[in-house]
């Protein structure tokens, strides 16, 4: 869908991005991960031409983006930024309606779309439609930011640290909400983040950048189990597996079995915490309950990722 070819951006003599080649698969979420200053934002902004490349090109659906007028290109790419950037003088509804209005949709259709989107991001339209951004919490404002980016139903969503300004609790909640939305909409998403947990949790794929170049591109499992360089291993950290488990529910690993006599956990618990319970209880199996009813058994062996992968491959 989006392809970067020998993409380059220089500032003076310094390269912000250097010879970057990358294909963002259609309908998937690719996390653009890397340490601060490695060129993530620059890369993202070269896709919608807020920053013009010094060399190389960006293909969108096979077409060179330079052949499009920048405004036209951008109206087809949803864009969410860390500072949220809502228009303080407009209501929530008017904010969300920005791109449909630029595209000249009629009023009725826009209004309906705004309500649908507010519902999609979990805000009651009747309550929030007429509010001004100044009356929203950070989490609510960012939800509006996501709704605004989705307004004209663009096939591509570019997000620059969209959850970065939120406190951990709000971030978790919004990440869950977004994962849900993405499962329904299947947009091609490029999500810039320097948060490894976020990348492991939301990314179908991860593009790890280092000093303006691509260090590795692959699934989270690829990066964790088959790091391409010491930098990748080092950046993800020795506890990367645990971080990945933290982003999954224990229920994903449950298999049928006899739960009698085993320590019990709820199915909503994340897999890393389940592992913690095993260590604490000195047990290599746990009974998983859904609302008090036994669901099955979670075994130590199943948490070992190679097993999980093998199962995934079979399925």
């Amino acid at each position: 869908m989006i392809e970067l070819q020998h993409l380059e951006r220089r500032y003076g003599d310094a390269y912000a991005v250097r010879d970057l080649n990358l294909k963002f698969p259609e309908g998937e979420l690719t996390a653009l991960l890397g340490p601060s200053g490695c060129g993530k934002t620059t890369t993202l902004r070269m896709i919608n031409r807020l920053t013009e490349p010094s060399a190389g090109r960006v293909l969108l659906g096979g077409r060179d983006t330079r052949d499009l007028r920048p405004e036209e290109l951008r109206r087809g790419l949803g864009y969410v930024i860390q500072q949220i950037g809502l228009f303080p003088h407009l209501t929530v509804a008017q904010n969300v309606a920005t791109v449909p209005e630029l595209l000249g949709w009629d009023r009725r259709r826009t209004a309906r779309r705004v309500d649908d989107l507010l519902e999609l991001v979990g805000l009651d339209p009747a309550v929030y439609r007429a509010k001004k951004p100044g009356e929203l919490s950070g989490g609510q404002a960012q939800r509006v930011g996501v709704a605004r980016a989705l307004a004209a139903d663009p096939p591509v969503l570019l997000m620059d640290e969209p959850f970065g300004a939120l406190d951990p609790l709000a971030r978790d909640r919004l990440q869950d909400a977004f994962k849900d939305i993405q499962q329904r909409l299947r947009k091609t998403v490029v999500l810039v983040t320097h948060d490894i947990d976020e990348a492991l949790r939301l990314g179908d794929r991860i593009a790890l950048m280092h000093a303006g170049t691509l260090a590795q591109f692959g699934t989270p499992d690829d990066l964790i189990h088959r790091p391409a360089s010491p930098f990748v291993r080092h950046f993800l950290g020795e506890d990367a597996v645990l971080r990945q488990l933290a982003g999954r529910a224990a229920a994903e690993f449950v298999r049928p079995g006899d739960p009698a006599g085993l320590p019990r956990i709820a199915d909503t618990l994340d897999a890393r915490s389940a592992l913690g319970v095993m260590l604490r209880e000195g047990s290599d199996a746990l009974a998983v309950l859904r609302e008090g009813v036994p669901l099955g058994v979670l075994r130590w062996d199943d948490l070992r990722v190679r097993e999980a992968q093998a199962r995934k491959a079979q399925a």
């Binding site: 920048p70 951008r74 864009y79 500072q83 950037g85 228009f87 791109v99 630029l102």
Partner: peptide, 12 residues
């Protein structure tokens, strides 16, 4: 705010 301008430009 620069974020507002950036968002506006980014929306086309």
């Amino acid at each position: 705010p620069s974020g507002t301008l950036d968002a506006a430009r980014g929306m086309g």
